[in-house]
Design a protein around this nucleic acid. Structure first.
Lengths: 142, 142
DNA sequence: GTCGGTGCAAAATATTTGCATTGTG
DNA sequence: CACAATGCAAATATTTTGCACCGAC
């Protein structure tokens, strides 16, 4: 995610109010590399905004997704959220379920986008690349 | 999906019984390009095997996924199933939710796999590439 | 002060699980 | 005829929705 203040600015630009709930979701998510569930975000936000409801957090996360401030990842079991909106792939460990960032060469990303736009004849908004395999933690060692 | 009989053979190889339910799921799914939900598969199977239960269909679909006969796609809202296990991407229409197959150049697929294996140091089992955008049906026309 | 935003509770949806019964090999 | 597989029902999990109240601007 871009920094705190840029995110606040985008919220205002969109005509939305900067409530303590929105502020806390943005601040808790910024810089987070753990690909948290909505529930994880909610419990961290709750430490700063007592009584925040899970449904509000869901609404805010989806809203931030629409503004391009957060990526919503459809992964097995549940949606996860990623403040890093620059192109990169994800590895999902088939053993423990952890999600890791994987860098993808810019040229490869561009190839995929153009192949898709050629095939469909329409604009592609965004792309998710998800890889499945055992992570280093879960691999049998020698 | 490879053809009916090859799929039956793999079922037997895996030590599983060729029940009417498994047979029907395989036959209904083979050649299907609609990326159906479990429920869609179940209702088609029900036409051939009256009384088949949704939970059995879920179990069989997941089993076929494990055998590599079907791809399980984690898409927004629900899982979808694809009998085509060769590398290709999917376009999800952000308007109507339809899923379309998108060809991906072999070289690009290989780039992604090798970038991922280099980054993680482990084997990647499989990969899902999902693109989001408006499909031709839902695009405003000139 | 207005009207967008929140919290709560309930609903909707998707998927999994336990267990008695059935039927394939 | 053994034991894997099914059907059923209930549990679980996730996400959405409706609405009365509240508070950011």
């Amino acid at each position: 995610m871009i920094d705190r203040d840029q995110a606040f600015e985008r919220i205002r630009q969109a005509g939305l109010r900067l409530t303590p709930q929105r502020r806390a979701v943005i601040e808790e998510l910024a810089g987070d590399r753990s690909h948290p569930l909505a529930e994880n975000v909610a419990s961290r936000v709750a430490a700063r905004v007592p009584g925040v409801s899970l449904s509000t957090v869901y609404k805010i996360l989806h809203e931030l997704g629409g503004l391009g401030l957060v990526r919503e990842l459809s992964l097995p079991g549940a949606m996860r959220f990623d403040p890093d909106v620059d192109p990169h792939a994800h590895l999902v460990c088939s053993e423990c379920g952890s999600v890791y960032d994987i860098p993808v060469p810019v040229a490869t990303t561009e190839d995929l986008f153009s192949a898709a736009e050629r095939a469909t004849g329409t604009d592609v908004i965004h792309m998710e690349v998800t890889l499945y395999g055992r992570c280093a933690q879960c691999s049998p060692r020698a």
